[in-house]
Nucleic acid binder design. Structure first.
Lengths: 251, 251
DNA sequence: TACTGTGAAAGACTTCACAGCC
DNA sequence: GGCTGTGAAGTCTTTCACAGTA
């Protein structure tokens, strides 16, 4: 999914498939919950259910990390938590800046899921002078003018953009120039970045649009039952219309 | 493919690939921007750049919808906007409820990207009685007690969950029981839903974790010249990165 | 000429199914 | 017996490359 990829020929390094990487946080979350309940071990079947995937996929995913399970028994919860955390790089501290402290930026600043996973909100930045100095989630908002200094002083390599679309590219360029090499973009626009910089995007309305697509199709199917209009090439019972997807889908 | 029809292009064309569906909103966004600038036509190359994908992929994607371009010329912007909107089901009105009006719920309620795409926030719902009646984004918050009535009165089929993780499954069940068949879940938990209900999830911290993974790897590459085994953290029981699994086989 | 539309090839990801180990 | 780890098969997605056409 559209991310500036820096592919090198991969000497003999750990080539974990991108799809697997995207699921590791899911497993980690499920494992953390088990850990909090002091569950010592878990089978691939149980963990898969908790993470919302199937067990074959989970085992395959884990096989890319190494052989961390015990046949006949399952996986040691604590050990797996550690291994996955390490693989994801969550055993280190990641200072993060959030640029654009509107509703969304404030929500992000308050979001508990960051701190609990090694991410530390090092600074909040906004272009509105009226916001400067005002605390959000206990952190004073700083003005965009100081962006470069903030990045450098805090050794920030991950930036979160929650500005309006119109400001995003410019903010992005300043972040990159100041040393940021990973960007999480909430602005509904495509960011152009140089090689070596990763961008991931979250667009709230895109997800809704995908839901609408499937929702519409459901409605269409109901109607098709009632009035079998044209025989659309077709066939088989409607049990499993091909696009109908399992409950939880990959992001 | 066999379907050479140019008329009445298959609303019901068998199976647009999921990957394509997920990109349609991206194209739509880029096209909308062009439309606002009164650009009449666009080539696959230009549009692809604006959407952040490559042109072959875009053309392939469009080929699933029908033949909406003109060889030697490109695509008519307005026409494509309409076709994609229709395909996504955005030409109809989708009343949506948001459950959980914390920071994130409020941000979503205020988010402009919904309204502009056929989504209408029909109601805001929260379990906190203190919030009841207070307007957020101009819409008064209603109490969870009335959830079922709200869903039914408004004919809502899409629900957005922005509650804490602990409340999400229960809210989900009530939504589904009341008739909701598509859910956008922001709570960091897996939702169990019956067949026929679609769930899409957005987990803000997952995206950051994926970035951290790549970020970590970048750092590793820089240092790769130095020492083969970074003495990062003690790999006590671990096999170590050396004698490791073959990871990925060269296909 | 310039660009779309699309088979066919390549690649990525998922699932199957079972060998191997506890 | 129960469960992991993994080749192999199957499916989905991307990319190539070029025929077709306004």
């Amino acid at each position: 999914m559209a991310t500036g990829r820096t592919h090198r020929p991969a000497t003999r390094s750990r080539g974990i498939p991108e799809a697997t990487v995207a699921r590791l946080p899911l497993y980690l979350r499920a494992l953390t919950a088990l850990s909090e309940r002091s569950v010592p071990t878990v089978s691939s079947e149980e963990l898969a259910a908790a993470a919302g995937v199937n067990s074959a996929k989970l085992r395959k995913d884990f096989s890319y990390l190494g052989s961390y399970g015990t046949r006949g028994v399952g996986y040691d919860v604590e050990y797996l938590v550690y291994q996955i955390s390490r693989e994801l790089g969550l055993t280190q501290d990641w200072p993060v800046v959030i640029v654009g402290i509107g509703n969304l930026g404030a929500a992000l600043a308050n979001y508990g899921g960051f701190a609990s996973r090694g991410f530390r909100v090092a600074a909040l930045i906004d272009a509105d002078p009226a916001l400067a100095g005002k605390p959000v989630a206990g952190i004073p908002v700083q003005h965009t003018d100081d962006l470069e200094k903030i990045i450098q002083d805090n050794g920030v390599s991950i930036g979160v953009i929650a500005t309006p679309a119109g400001a995003a590219q410019q903010v992005c360029e300043r972040l990159v120039a100041a040393g940021v090499t990973s960007i999480l973009n909430f602005a509904p626009t495509v960011l152009n970045v140089p090689e070596g910089v990763d961008v991931r995007k979250v667009d709230l309305s895109i997800e809704l649009q995908i839901l609408a697509f499937h929702e519409q199709r459901k409605a269409g199917e109901e109607a098709a039952d009632a009035v079998p209009a044209a025989a659309t090439s077709g066939d088989t019972t409607d049990q499993g219309p091909d696009g109908d997807v399992p409950a939880v889908m990959p992001a």
